[in-house]
Write a protein that binds this DNA or RNA. Structure first.
Lengths: 224, 224
DNA sequence: ATAATATTCAATTAAAACCTTGAATACACG
DNA sequence: CGTGTATTCAAGGTTTTAATTGAATATTAT
């Protein structure tokens, strides 16, 4: 039974559980990966570069407040976002942080050299061009993430295999590359390398999760 | 200078500062009040029922990550939300919490008895009716919050003075009451009391901050 | 000037969060 | 039926956060 008095603080305490869940950098990174696709504990630990036990604990924290769900298949446990709105939560946090935290801006300028030098394409614009077929959409994420969902008609060439698979890209057409999101370097790298090879390349402003959140169409499972 | 290696974790650490800011119930309550209007430290401490020193500290943590700004006037310091998107952040947190935290639902059912029994009016619907003049819009928040911004044409009768000012309300027309937001009891109380007096009363689904966030029109400073 | 008020600062204590380590569990495979 | 693998659990030490208290600062009013 819940104590009768002072219910209002208890309500805010419950709300703060969502806040606590996103109050840790490692958990945020895990959420960013989970926004791409379902993943096992081990695989998350590897990409986020934290120990397995620690990863497991963070995932449980996230699960206890309903931000992710778990599914067991064989000996592995697969986690996924419970709700598309989790991406919305992360997006707003990112917007607020970028506009109000000077330290973040500084970090971004280091990490994402010349963020605006790759003239980012807004989602709506890309959608229009893609429908006209006047642009090649390039997904540079790993295969597993691509097959869990990707932009309609996108060609998947993981960044590591970009140089070896240039033949899949029409040499004359403009290329728009995208990856996990605003803080993912894959698309930046891809654009830089493609330009060095003489391609006309730009990058999508956001990543796949934001595209989905905006209600724009995606495809699943098709391997190009 | 920032260490060259491992910039990605540092970016997420910065993002997590926003999370930490909303990871405490008292701070969330403060933000809810600030979403209504600018307020001084003392006034916030009083309504939130926490000590002044503690309130000041919480406000400083909020300011350090840019969620609120401060302005000094005379001997008082007035805080306000720095950004309308802070309301969006809180809204998403609330949605996620309500859908995924069973404990919260339980608390709400205690605190907001018969939440749906007052058939809440969606914002868009109220806007239409209000323009037709077929409904009386009632703001039951304190005067200061009302004058900082309110729904167009809304009559302000703070809950405490409701019984004494019933004459301001047309007896036959339907009344829609609103207050601070989904967890504010003022409108609930008002609807209950009005119904007891024979009025036809309902409540707005959300409060003023959510109304503003949706881009719907408001008025300022007019005292009805 | 002096006193009163509003806010912040600084120091302390208690509580919670974070990560590591090593063991335990649960399932699949040979 | 044992062995290997994936994950979780439990215990620990360290760091961070929260709230209290009392003093310090700054501004207004007398």
């Amino acid at each position: 039974m819940i104590s009768e008095k002072a219910v209002k603080p208890q309500i805010f305490a419950q709300l703060s559980r969502i806040g606590k869940a996103v109050a840790n950098g490692n958990r945020l990174e895990l959420l960013e990966f989970l926004a791409q696709s379902e993943r096992s504990v081990e695989s998350l630990a590897k990409v986020a570069n934290i120990t397995i036990a620690n990863t497991s604990q963070h995932l449980q924290t996230l699960r206890q407040c309903g931000l992710v769900t778990a599914r067991k298949d064989g000996q592995k446990v697969y986690y996924r976002l419970s709700d598309r709105r989790v991406v919305a939560l992360l997006s707003i946090m990112r917007e607020l942080a970028e506009d109000h935290l000077a330290d973040l801006e500084k970090l971004i300028s280091i990490y994402l050299t010349s963020r605006d030098g790759m003239d980012p394409v807004p989602a709506q614009e890309l959608l229009r061009w893609a429908r006209e077929g006047s642009v090649t959409v390039l997904d540079v994420r790993p295969v597993e993430e691509y097959s869990a969902g990707h932009l309609p008609g996108a060609v998947n060439i993981p960044l590591k295999e970009l140089e070896a698979n240039l033949s899949l890209l029409p040499p004359s057409q403009e290329i728009v590359a995208y990856c996990r999101g605003p803080y993912c370097v894959l698309a930046f790298e891809a654009v830089a390398r493609l330009r060095a090879k003489g391609y006309r390349a730009r990058r999508l402003e956001d990543g796949l999760p934001e595209w989905q959140l905006a209600g724009l169409p995606t495809e699943r499972g098709v391997v190009a």
